[in-house]
Amino acid sequence: MVAEAAKRSFDDLVAEAESVSVDGWDFSWLDGRATEERPSWGYSRLMAERMARAHAALDVQTGGGEVLAGVPRLPAVTVATESWPPNITRAAARLRPRGVAVVADDDEPRLPFQDGAFDLVTSRHPVTTWWEEIARVLRPGGTYLSQEVGSGSVGELTEFFMGPQPHGTARDPERARAAAEDAGLEVLDLRWERLSTVFHDVGAVIYFLRKVIWIVPGFSAGRYRAELRELHDRIQDEGPFVAYATRFLIEARKPLPA
Rank of each mutant, 00 (worst) to 15 (best):
Val2Tyr: 00
Ala3Thr: 10
Ala5Pro: 00
Val14Phe: 04
Glu18Tyr: 02
Gly24Val: 08
Gly32Tyr: 09
Gly32Arg: 10
Glu36Gly: 04
Arg45Lys: 14
Arg50Gln: 13
Met51Pro: 00
Asp59Val: 11
Val67Thr: 13
Gly70Arg: 14
Leu74Gly: 04
Thr78Ala: 13
Ala80Tyr: 05
Ser83Ala: 15
Pro85Val: 11
Asn87Gly: 08
Ile88Tyr: 00
Arg90Val: 10
Arg94Asn: 01
Arg96Cys: 10
Pro109Tyr: 09
Pro112Ser: 12
Leu120Pro: 05
Arg124Val: 10
Trp130Gly: 00
Ala135Glu: 11
Ala135Ser: 14
Arg136Ser: 03
Leu138Pro: 03
Gly141Ile: 07
Gly142Tyr: 09
Thr143Lys: 12
Thr143Gly: 01
Ser146Arg: 11
Gly150Leu: 03
Gly152Asp: 08
Glu159Arg: 00
Phe160Glu: 11
Pro164Gln: 02
Gln165Arg: 09
Thr169Leu: 06
Arg175Pro: 00
Ala176Gln: 06
Glu186Gly: 01
Leu188Pro: 03
Glu193Val: 08
Glu193Pro: 04
Arg194Trp: 08
Arg194Phe: 06
His200Asp: 00
His200Ser: 02
Val205Thr: 03
Ile206Ala: 08
Ile206Gln: 08
Ile213Val: 15
Val216Thr: 06
Gly218Trp: 04
Arg225Ala: 13
Glu227Phe: 02
Arg229Lys: 13
Arg229Asp: 11
Leu231Met: 14
Asp233Gly: 13
Asp237Met: 01
Glu251Pro: 03
Arg253Phe: 03
Lys254Phe: 06
Pro255Arg: 02
Pro257Met: 07
Ala258Val: 10
